[in-house]
Design a protein around this nucleic acid. Structure first.
Lengths: 361, 361
DNA sequence: TTGTATGCGTTATCAG
DNA sequence: CTGATAACGCATACAA
């Protein structure tokens, strides 16, 4: 049966003209074969005209372009994926965009990847565990690489990813192996730096509001902070757990400063927590920042520089993060294994109003 | 030549066993043929096992699954796209994620689309004009639909889209035709509502800080505001142009309130502008909000509910927006033309502190 | 139930 | 420079 169609092809150029297109309703796009037929050339020439790889005479080129225009032809990239085993698709996995920092990084990535000729497949996973549900989908779309902006990436999740043999770049994760490269900011150093700053401003008692316990980034910032406090002979900080959100910072600060003894310097694992904490101090507890309490955050989200907030914080070197990631992805495309060392990009202190007071004065 | 390979297939199951896989370095994934060979069944059976559409005997099913496991087989979706002319890919076009409202909507979309079995291709375009560069790419990836969160969509851009015969859902655009459906909030009514509220609070002179002139959403909000002010006999509002960003609101407010005559009620086209304006009033001009000036915004971004901001604003019915969009996309997939009427979802007033004062008291 | 053959829309190879 | 043809990996109609 099907052989019949085939058999008819040899002389088909001039066969049933009405059979040209409105055949099946499924077909939405003209194919190179359709174009070829209309232009009166071979399909190869159409392909060559659009890929530009090979030479085509000006006359055929013109005929092809005309026919293509008439049929609204858009070459499909799908078959190419099959042939080359490269989709030019990069998946970005995010767990939530409520933190403006992630939005900003995501945007940066989109721009850069597009510029490099990649398309971005955006994937949302509510939590680390759900990763297993999404991964097969990504593999099925043959993404070239996966960038995980997930705050946390469990060893189990990492294992799932590793099985796919797809290069993975993960932010702020402890995992790092043949298929997973970790990219983080200088979290530990930032913690140290803030401790130094607080001490220089005359602070005597210290507080820290963390992200989720599972967040390596939060843990590292805290470690640096605690270590430096210990080194300088200051007492250990009071710790409260937040969740990286405004509300978490607000509630944690209420708890930490509601009692009798209160810290006079507070480091928060991110800006959202810090802003929540500041609001709790000012609006609910009647404390002044920085006159009574020094506060610092991390991320340098847009709100941190608002006049009413003016928060001391750290900027990630977003450009470097993206650069590194991009180069990892690109080199991985040549089949090379990933760099085996975690990548660390700088975090720069931005001093603003919330630490501008010398507590001894 | 190639025919030889083909000819060899019949008895190939037991042929050169080393030829099994590490053939070409390009190939990263096992194919259904590889699995079939290892399992000792036909490729069809592998396909059937994974698609689940047809019946497969328990014994073969088991053999197939085992082989697949051993080879880390992940069925590719790419060929299916070719067969069905459906990619299950939906493109979301964004112009910038600096506005938390967009991030939130984007996240909502991702979640819903994924739940509906679609993947999201995220595309960034710096401006309306650049849309033309990106569209062909999207067509080449055979996306099923395009959701444009671009604040503006020019008629030219719309025309480009229409040629592709890809369903487009655009937010807050004036365009609406066979291929482009517009989805917006009740911008006009919101403008009226705010005017009413200001008047009820005893305001006498009014101000408005707009988004970019090209933004239809901003224009509609202003129109409703102005119309109601006119109806009630109040003077026309002082207008300043912002750009939907904090800095724009800050600068615009400085200009509008820096002179001798100043409005005592200010409506801003979005929350970011409003927050910028408030900061300018409080931190730079020494004015009190709401005691001296009432302020309202639009979007209900997270920061609007921060204790230090406490901004009166409007929430979009994000869930409805996504619902509508999703149903449009899904129905369009059956080849039906798009709904010809623009979709309007409700905007609900959220009264907060920045309008809590009665100016006459 | 299972196997065979064919097509989807490209690119690459190989003859002309 | 041009045309035929073989893949790529899967789904499906058809035959067995």
């Amino acid at each position: 049966m099907t052989a019949e169609k085939k058999a008819a092809t040899p002389g088909a150029e001039d066969a049933s003209p009405d059979k040209d297109w409105p055949r099946d309703s499924l077909k939405k796009y003209a194919s190179s074969i359709d174009v070829a037929r209309v232009a009166g050339v071979s399909q190869s020439q159409v392909s060559r005209t659009f890929s530009g790889s090979s030479k085509v005479s000006e006359s055929t080129r013109k005929k092809v372009l005309e026919a293509a225009e008439r049929l609204d032809y858009r070459p499909s990239l799908i078959p190419r994926i099959m042939l080359t085993h490269k989709s030019n698709l990069v998946a970005i996995v995010v767990g939530g965009l409520y933190n403006p920092f992630y939005s900003a990084v995501l945007e940066e990535f989109m721009i850069r990847f597009q510029a490099a000729g990649h398309q971005v497949l955006l994937v949302h996973v509510p939590n680390d565990h759900a990763l297993d549900d999404v991964i097969p989908k990504l593999a099925s779309y043959r993404v070239d690489a996966i960038v995980s902006a997930l705050a946390i990436l469990s060893p189990a999740g990492a294992a799932t990813l590793a099985k796919l043999k797809i290069p993975v770049i993960a932010f702020n994760t402890a995992v790092n192996n043949r298929w997973v490269t970790s990219v983080s900011s200088e979290n530990f150093q930032a913690g140290q730096t803030i401790a130094d700053l607080f001490i220089a401003r005359g602070a005597r008692s210290f507080g820290f509001i963390s992200g989720p316990w599972t967040s390596p980034a939060s843990a590292r910032r805290r470690e640096g902070y605690e270590e430096r406090l210990r080194e300088t002979g200051a007492g250990p900080p009071t710790i409260a757990r937040g969740d990286y959100r405004y509300e978490g910072g607000f509630a944690a600060a209420l708890g930490m400063f509601g009692g009798s003894s209160r810290p006079d310097a507070l480091f928060c694992a991110n800006d959202l927590l810090a802003i929540g904490a500041i609001d709790a101090l000012r609006e609910r507890l009647g404390l002044r920042v920085p006159d009574d309490v020094l506060v610092a955050g991390f991320d340098d989200i847009p709100a941190a520089s608002w006049a009413s907030v003016d928060l001391t914080t750290f900027t990630h070197d977003a450009a470097a993060m993206v650069d590194e990631t991009l180069s990892i992805v690109l080199s991985a495309e040549n089949g090379k294994p990933l760099a085996t060392k975690p990548v660390v990009v700088s975090a720069r202190l931005i001093e603003r109003g919330t630490t501008s007071k010398d507590l001894r004065s």
